[in-house]
Each structure stands twice: as C-alpha cells, then as structure tokens.
Design a protein around this nucleic acid. Structure first.
Lengths: 264, 264
DNA sequence: GAGTGGTCTAGACCACTGT
DNA sequence: CAGTGGTCTAGACCACTCC
C-alpha cells in the first residue's frame, strides 16, 4: 500500500489528465485538500511537490495552485545555418532586415530584443580542447540574450567563444556596440576571410541551475536544453564554439537530415 | 535576508561546486546538518530538496546523500541515418552484424539488449495530422526498448508508428518476433519499395512523467529529451513517425549540418 | 542494532494577492 | 482583511542499508 502523499498525487494527477481542473484553472487550496483527504497540510504539500516536479502544476504564492498551461513553442531549425551562410555575403541593407532567429520564428526584428556583452578570457581546459589550442589561450567571449518585446525573461542565453587573435584581424569585431551585427556570426567571420564547412551541434537536457532558473524565469519543474554549437571552417579548423541554454517548455529544436539517393 | 533553507542550500551548493565533498562522496547526515546549522531536520530536508531538483545530489534511503556523479553520455548522431540508408540494401549477413545504435555508441551487438512489442492502433488526432491521414486510420505501433547488458533500465524508449496498410504489403513486417530486424527500419521500408528522402527530428526537454521515471529508472532531478522523428520518402510522403524518450543525464544528441560552398 | 533517509502530524507564523 | 502558498519547529515512527 502506497504512502498517503503518493496516493494523493495519483488522484490529483488522474484528475488533471482528465481535464479536471482544466489547464490554467485553479486547484483546491492546500487546506481544503488536507480536509478532503483527511491528512495534514504537509502531506498535501508533499503530493503537490511531486506534481510540480513533473511540470504538471504551477504554484503561485498568495494566488493558488494552477494546472500548467503548455507554452507555445519557439522553433529553432538547423536550416538557419545554410540560410545564414547564404546571406553572409549579401549587401548590408538586406542583412539588416532579418536575423536568423527571426527567420526561424517567423517574427520581425521589432518583436525581439537583443543584448550583447563582450569579454576577454583565458581558455579553460574544456574550451581549449574544443578548439584544439593550449590552455590559457586568449579568447573573446560574447554573451547574448534574446527576449520577446514586452516579456521580462530572455528565451535564450548564449555564450559564444572565438580565438582572440583570429577576430582581432578586424577590430570592429571586438566592439560589442556593433551588435546586433547584420548578417550574424557567419558575416563576421566572412570579414576576416573565413568560410564555414559545417556546424556540429551537441544537445543534452538537464534541470536548470539556480542562476539559469532565475535569469530565464523558469518555474520549478521546467528543464533546459543545453546546446553546444561548433563551427568548423573549410580548412577543418574550429573557429567558434557557442553554449546555448534554452528553456525546455518553450523551445523546439528541428533538425532535418537530407539523405543521398540510392544509386540504381 | 534569505530563508534558512535557501541559505543552507547555498552553503552546500558552494561546497559541492568547490569539490567538498567530491562527486560520488557522501554528505553529512541530515541530523548532523540540522545540528550544524542549528535548524530542524525538515529545514535541512527542504534545502536538500532544492539541490536534488537541480540534479546536484542523489539521496538513497538507508545509505545517505551523495554528490551526483556525471554519467558517461551515450552519443546519438544524425549521421546514423545516412549510414542506415547505405546499409539498407546490403546483404543480410552484413546487416546482421551491427545496428545503428551500436554504430553510434561504438558498442557491439552483444552489449545491448533489445526488445520489441507490436500493436495495432487507430490513429489519434495528433498522429493522423503528422501522417496527413484521417483520424482513426489503422496504424502499426511498435514499442522498442534498448538497454545495456547487465543494467536494469532501458536507455531509450521508442514508440514507432507506420500506416498499417503500407506495411501489410510485406506480412513479415507485422511480426514482432522478427525483431531485431537486420538493417533496421530503412531496410524494412526497402522491402516494400520505399526509399527515404530525409529525416526530420524535433526535440524538446521536460521533466519525466511518473511512468517514464519508473521505466527508465530516473532519479528525481533528471530531465528527459523528447524526440519526434519523422521519415519522409522520395515522394514527399510521411512513412514513419517515432517518439523517443531519452534520459537527459546519459544522452548526447549530435547533429552535423553540412553547408554548401560559396560560389566564387 | 546503529545509522540514515522518508513519511506524517499539529500547529505557529510569514509573505504575498486580491477585495 | 481573508485567503493562499511558503517556512519552520519538535517529535514520532517507518523503511532501508550495512555491519
């Protein structure tokens, strides 16, 4: 026989899955549930803790407990890379109209707010390995945040790394006030004579750290997608590495893999 | 001034990040921590709840609380698709030697245990839409589990769907005892004259449901990657849809996007 | 049997939201 | 001010692990 908290969680979980209450609606108060199930409030809270960890409910102090409403997903497709490459050599007027995030999401430039912050950095072990350089090599770190106009929390958090000596060939690339750079990173690389051959993306999922939860405004029970993007140029050299944190409840990554035709 | 549970969580979090205790090592007992911080055991437990939700610690009843040890990641690359396509027309002896999961992970066939279960199904709304067929269309559902030899829990959980009338052209494809099928799904499709043009994969992250956590043996504080794979044939027809659940703490998805060369 | 995490109670008080 | 979720206490008892 299961514990009381688990049994209560089971009952509430089944109710919620049956649409009772519906997404967005309020559950009974903790004290009311305690009376209904004839247990202490702490036991009810322990049951609600489980549902919250599963991402089924939202608890808001002073207002109540609500059934989680699925968020509309922001799509991010790997077709953005070829699209960005094709545009990297376009005239500036055209590059200025749309960025790759807008291309993905179908939004316009004014819907999204963008911020950039540049720093210098000595490559730590992990990064040095990714670039194939020695530890302590001078790097440029660029921190990007993108958010919806009108919302508080960003919908992604990006740390991009480039070898300092590589980008220093064009001093404009060291200036954060030049962001958002029309045409994005691939145009920036183009200005220093670099053409990309391929982009490799590694993805995992995990719960957010405390800092990420705060910065992205994630409620307990939301996971993050962790993306490490590696840009490799036509000489097989790693020229950029980005670490991107995306909220799992509002992001959908799309990867299309084209296949070669069978030979008859 | 923050609450006691948050302050305790902060102290422990900093200690853990500084390697004190190191991954795999045991934390002090809850009663000991309560004495050290001069609070009740419940308050300590509330602090540990936070660390557990962040995936920092493992709590094992009767043994103690341990700093989470990162698991070795199982890699899954999108290069598997082209690889599987190339092999789909190979002789059976060759197809039998390795599957695409083994290709990805570098393991041999004997390292992994595979199970399959077939069912018939009327297409619900979401699935019907993915295939572009009417709701209620007869589908074949195939449920796959792959796990390490010697481990209890599977490392993935796959629900694959095919239009029943399509696969019925080869009755062998309706027989679950023919699994694992040498050459995989792309060879199965080949037997009924289907060639794939591309594979589209959609990815999100979320905490596991109760059922997923049980089946995959996930500790609290582990997220899952949710993958929907859609196979599209050379006539632009959706021929297979798979939903794959992967444990976030042991899976790394790798996607390589090749870029076309700039024209001079 | 000693040690450790997990459940449960009953009640006090705090912090926030809405009227 | 009433209602609701969040923190905290002190103590009882249970379940599991390891010696």
């Amino acid at each position: 026989m299961a514990n009381k908290n688990e049994r209560i969680a089971d009952v509430l979980r089944k109710d919620i899955r049956a649409g009772q209450p519906a997404p967005g609606e309020k559950l009974a108060a903790e004290t009311a549930l305690a009376a209904r199930f004839k247990v202490s409030v702490q036991t009810v809270r322990s049951a609600l803790d489980m549902l919250q960890a599963e991402g089924l409910i939202d608890r808001i102090q002073g207002r109540g407990t609500f059934v989680f409403t699925p968020r509309t997903l922001v799509r991010r497709s790997n077709e953005r890379h070829q699209w960005e490459k094709d545009r990297a050599r376009s005239p500036e007027a055209e590059r200025r109209t749309t960025g790759s995030t807008e291309h993905d999401t179908g939004l316009t430039v004014t819907d999204l707010v963008f911020s950039a912050e540049y720093r210098e950095l000595q490559a730590p072990a992990g990064l040095a390995k990714a670039f194939g350089v020695t530890e302590g090599t001078r790097m440029l770190e660029r921190i990007y945040r993108t958010r919806y106009q009108g919302e508080d929390e960003p919908l992604n958090l990006t740390h991009s790394f480039l070898p300092y000596d590589l980008v220093a060939a064009n001093p404009a690339l060291l200036d954060e006030s030049a962001e958002p750079w029309p045409g994005g990173t691939q145009n920036q690389l183009f200005t220093i004579g670099i053409e990309l051959d391929r982009i490799e993306e590694k993805l995992t999922a995990r719960p957010p750290t405390l800092e990420e939860a705060e910065e992205l405004g994630l409620r307990p029970g939301v996971a993050v997608l962790v993306l490490r993007k590696t840009c490799i140029d036509i000489n097989d050299r790693t020229v950029e590495v980005s670490d991107v944190i995306l909220p799992g409840d509002r992001t959908e990554m799309v990867f299309t893999t084209p296949l070669n035709r069978w030979q008859a």
